[in-house]
Simulated assay, not measured.
Amino acid sequence: MPSISLITLAVADVARSRAFYEALGMRDATPSNEAEAVAFLDGGGVVLSLYGREALAEDTGLADARPGGMTLAFNVPKPEDVPARLAEAVAAGATVMKEPREMPWGGVTAYFADPDGHPWEITWVREFPLTEDGRIVLSDDPAVP
Rank of each mutant, 00 (worst) to 15 (best):
T123W: 00
V125G: 07
S3D: 07
K78V: 06
M103E: 15
F112W: 11
F128Y: 15
Y111P: 01
D140V: 02
T109N: 10
L86H: 01
G68I: 09
D140S: 14
E54T: 13
P100A: 07
Y21T: 07
P31I: 07
L138M: 14
V46M: 13
V76K: 04
D42Y: 11
E58N: 11
Y21D: 04
E22G: 02
R16N: 05
P115K: 12
V144W: 13
P77C: 04
A63F: 01
M1N: 11
A65F: 01
V46R: 01
A73W: 03
P115W: 10
G93S: 07
L86E: 04
I122F: 09
L9D: 02
A143I: 00
E88F: 01
G68L: 11
E99H: 11
H118C: 04
P83A: 06
T95S: 14
P145L: 12
G44L: 03
D114E: 13
T131Q: 08
R53V: 03
R66P: 03
D116Y: 04
S3V: 14
R126A: 15
L50P: 03
A39S: 15
G134C: 04
I122A: 04
L24G: 06
P129H: 05
V137W: 08
E132V: 07
R126K: 15
S3L: 13
P67N: 12
D116H: 07
E88R: 14
P2G: 01
G44C: 05
I7H: 03
R27F: 00
V38K: 04
D13C: 08
G134S: 11
M103H: 00
D81Q: 05
D81N: 13
M26N: 01
E58F: 03
F40Q: 02
D59T: 12
R85L: 12
D13P: 05
A89G: 06
L6C: 11
A113V: 07
V144Q: 13
K98D: 02
L62W: 10
A92Q: 10
M26I: 02
A35L: 07
D13S: 08
A19E: 15
T123N: 12
A87H: 06
I7K: 02
A110P: 08
P142R: 11
E132A: 15
V125W: 09
T60K: 09
V96T: 15
A94M: 07
I4C: 07
A10P: 09
A55V: 13
E88T: 14
P2F: 14
G44P: 02
L48F: 06
S49K: 13
E88C: 00
A23K: 13
T71N: 09
A63V: 08
